[in-house]
Simulated assay, not measured.
Amino acid sequence: MTTQRKPSANAARRSDTSRRAILAAAFELVGEVGYAKLSIEGIAARAGVGKQTIYRWWPSKGAVLFDAFLSFTEGSDGEAVLPDTGDLEADLKTVLRATVAELNDPRYDEPMRALNTEIAHDPELAAAYSERLDGPMREIKKRRLRAAQQAGQLAEDLDLDLAVEMLWGPLLNRWLQRGGPLTPEYADRVVEATLNGLRPRR
């Protein structure tokens, strides 16, 4: 009878160290060389691991980059929530201004653009994005809007999914298309114009 040995604590630590090194390498390289020139070979060389180590955990460079992006953007202080001061307009302006700052951050610009391109052509990556990032973030946004709805600040029959798209969609579209300056003032105008159409009719 054979028995399976459990991985040692040292082996687990080595795996975790290698994984972190790979994610850091992918995130750094895509900013330096762009997504088109990013390769598994390049990531492996920067991380100091073999290519097979990467393929053991990820099927493609897009999958590596997605995990790298998540590891560098997710918080460590519990579940994310949107501010709720009771002033919906002020809270949304705060959140959309933070979104503008992130989209304009040169550390994240190239990885996010690369992911958007790859998601459009990779169904598996698109499913992972929906499950692990877009879906949870949408629910967080809807939760804040639902609280405002229950407080009578938004129409009772409001489609919350549509409201999320109306608020965040213009920012993402302007960023993707480079269609104009993406500024805090633009974010404020989006909030004001959108809420004018979403508030209850008197």
Rank of each mutant, 00 (worst) to 15 (best):
M1D: 07
T2Q: 12
R5K: 09
S8L: 11
S8I: 07
T17M: 09
R20D: 12
Y35T: 00
G42V: 04
R46L: 12
Q52A: 11
T53R: 15
W58S: 03
V64Q: 03
L65R: 01
F66Q: 05
A68S: 08
L70S: 07
S71L: 04
S71A: 15
G75E: 10
G75Q: 06
D77K: 11
D77N: 14
V81E: 14
P83A: 07
P83S: 05
D84T: 02
D87N: 03
D91G: 04
K93T: 11
A98W: 01
T99A: 09
A101C: 07
N104Y: 00
N104E: 10
D105A: 12
R107N: 05
M112L: 15
T117W: 13
I119F: 10
I119P: 04
P123F: 08
S130G: 15
R132A: 13
L133M: 15
P136W: 09
R146P: 05
E156V: 08
E156P: 12
D157I: 06
D159H: 13
A163R: 12
A163L: 13
V164G: 11
W168C: 12
W168N: 10
R174T: 06
P181E: 15
P181I: 02
L182P: 07
A187K: 04
V190W: 10
V190I: 14
E192N: 10
E192I: 15
L195G: 04
